[in-house]
């Protein structure tokens, strides 16, 4: 099963490698990992997407909690939550493709954030499936470059991850 694990961790140098090292040392899977400081700059928030049986995910959360710099861990996928990912796509946009790309981008609520005579850069957010759907809606030969941030997640309603 796919799980989204959210972590609050001390914003210390090396903290990221403790987390990624844990996953590689114990053979846990990482689909994506995102990290950035929170509104309190002494803390970072990490979102890890991992696939594993319930037993493995339980071990992952326990092992993460054991890391000295980890302040809190929750498995967001245990309850209602929202996940988003940001993607930037550079597309070859010439001739009649320019119109067509613009139209598809609008359907997916993408934004064109860079324009040259022959290219567009489109910014798109959504869950992973939406981003995948956008890419498959565009003819593959037009796709020059893609970059995705990986998933960020947050609980719905009163579920709050804070110190």
């Amino acid at each position: 099963m796919r799980h989204i694990i959210s972590i609050l961790i001390e914003n210390e140098s090396g903290a990221l490698s403790r987390v990624s090292g844990l996953f590689s040392a114990r053979g846990y899977n990482i689909e994506s990992l995102t990290v950035a400081p929170t509104e309190d700059p002494s803390l970072s928030r990490m979102t890890i997407v991992s696939i594993g049986s319930n037993d493995i995910i339980e071990q992952i959360t326990k092992q993460l909690n054991k890391l000295i710099e980890v302040v809190k861990v929750v498995d967001l996928s245990e309850a209602a939550h929202i996940e988003r990912e940001l993607m930037l796509v550079k597309l070859r946009a010439t001739g009649k493709d320019r119109e067509e790309i613009k139209r598809i981008s609008d359907i997916f609520r993408g934004r064109i954030i860079d324009v040259t005579e022959s290219t567009y850069v489109i910014e798109l957010t959504g869950n992973g499936a939406k981003l995948d759907a956008f890419l498959s809606a565009i003819e593959s030969s037009l796709i020059l470059e893609t970059v995705r941030t990986g998933v960020s997640g947050i609980g719905r309603g009163d579920r709050i991850l804070k110190v």
């Binding site: 090396g14 090292g21 040392a25 000295i68």
Partner: peptide, 14 residues
């Protein structure tokens, strides 16, 4: 040192 010992200490500091 911090990298080499990370997986075999409870914690380490530089």
């Amino acid at each position: 040192t911090v990298g080499i010992t990370r997986p075999c200490v409870k914690h380490n500091f530089l």
